[in-house]
Simulated scan of single mutants.
Amino acid sequence: AELFKELREWVMEFLGSLQATTMAISRIDAISSLAEVSQSNNYVRPEMSDDGALSISDGRHPVIEVLREGQYIPNSLQLDNKQRQLMILTGPNMGGKSTYMRQTALICIMAQAGCFVPASSARLGMVDRVFTRVGAHDDLVHGHSTFMVEMLELANILRNATTNSLVLLDEIGRGTSTFDGLALAWAVSEQLHAEKGVKTLFATHYHQLTDVAKILDRSVNCHMQAKEDGHELTLLHRVAEGPTDASFGIHVAKMAGVPEEVLVRARKVLENLEQGTTIEVSKAGPVQSVFSPTFSARSEIKENPVINEIKKMDLMNLTPLQALEKLHDIQQKLL
């Protein structure tokens, strides 16, 4: 104990020098680590700007390109505050949307940390914060469903994001009904575009959301490319301008090993849904109609009570006077 006490007192005499040396060594270690990974993975020195634009040529994900077998497919990105502030990103599952968004955030963070970045060139504006709403998980301890967690994180983004922030949104609204989810996604797009002016990458499977680019002047559509050959799908993992017209969910299900009989049935149901025709239960026994012939994407809208009343009228047994009275009643309800 006495020896330890003497050693401690001796060390205390040099404490200031030891702490300064430790800090210097830690800085050298960090800088040399950044230099080594930049050299070994062919990173480039980013150009920092004050115009707020994010311009990345042939960007790569710094982790996935190392862990993944085969050649990593790079993708470029252009976001700014004048013409390309909001990007609506569509494409198939596993097509690379989430990877594309995450590599953008990592490149921005690496650049501001003083590291070279995985790209052929990069010109980056300073970002004050990176906000993400990616993935799906619940919080059972606090009684929050997956959708509630999503909305809490979204509320934080809408309250705190600034014009210098970068926002990544992955499939907002998927945890609720189609129309509720689409409505929320659309409203969020408008808020981030017009009210906040935030540079945003918004990945979605709501193809209706691509119409935002026709309305909002600083929004653009991009998609992850895929090549379809019959029931086969080849994911190209490349970003291209413009929206996609399909999510290829059934193709991805086939790639995952879903039984063929389920896929065949899914294709039939999809075809009927797209054509608005009746879907029938494929079971032995009486055929039961699941959806009416008029089923469409708007089937969630409640029926109009006036229309129901008209459908129930026995027109063949109404006198002309009674018909006029009914018409008058309906007119009053619509006024």
Rank of each mutant, 00 (worst) to 15 (best):
Q71V: 14
L79Y: 13
S49F: 00
H142T: 14
L86T: 00
I310L: 12
I109R: 14
L86G: 05
D314S: 07
L168H: 10
L77F: 04
K227I: 08
G181I: 15
A122L: 02
D128M: 13
I215Q: 10
E171F: 03
L318T: 13
L3T: 00
V117G: 05
K311M: 12
C115W: 05
A185R: 11
I215D: 12
F147M: 09
G125C: 12
H231Q: 13
M255P: 05
L318P: 10
R123C: 13
L152R: 15
A213R: 07
G242C: 10
A113T: 10
E300H: 14
Y72I: 05
A113N: 11
L335C: 08
L124M: 06
V212L: 08
I73E: 15
M23F: 04
L263M: 12
P62E: 06
S282C: 06
D245I: 02
D139I: 09
D128I: 11
I73R: 07
A113R: 08
R174C: 09
N160I: 09
N75V: 05
S292I: 01
S40H: 01
T204K: 11
E274V: 08
Y100C: 01
K333V: 02
D128T: 07
T244I: 07
I250W: 01
M255H: 10
G249I: 02
P62L: 11
V37E: 06
S57L: 02
V198W: 03
L34V: 07
G52C: 10
S55L: 05
G91M: 08
L168V: 06
S292C: 02
T22Q: 13
R218D: 15
S17Y: 03
A266T: 08
I172Q: 03
T277M: 01
S299P: 00
S121G: 13
Q83K: 14
I31K: 14
I107A: 02
P74A: 01
I107T: 11
G95V: 11
I215M: 01
S282P: 14
T132S: 14
K326Q: 08
G114C: 00
P293Q: 04
L182H: 06
N81I: 01
Y100R: 01
N41T: 07
Q275Y: 04
I279A: 00
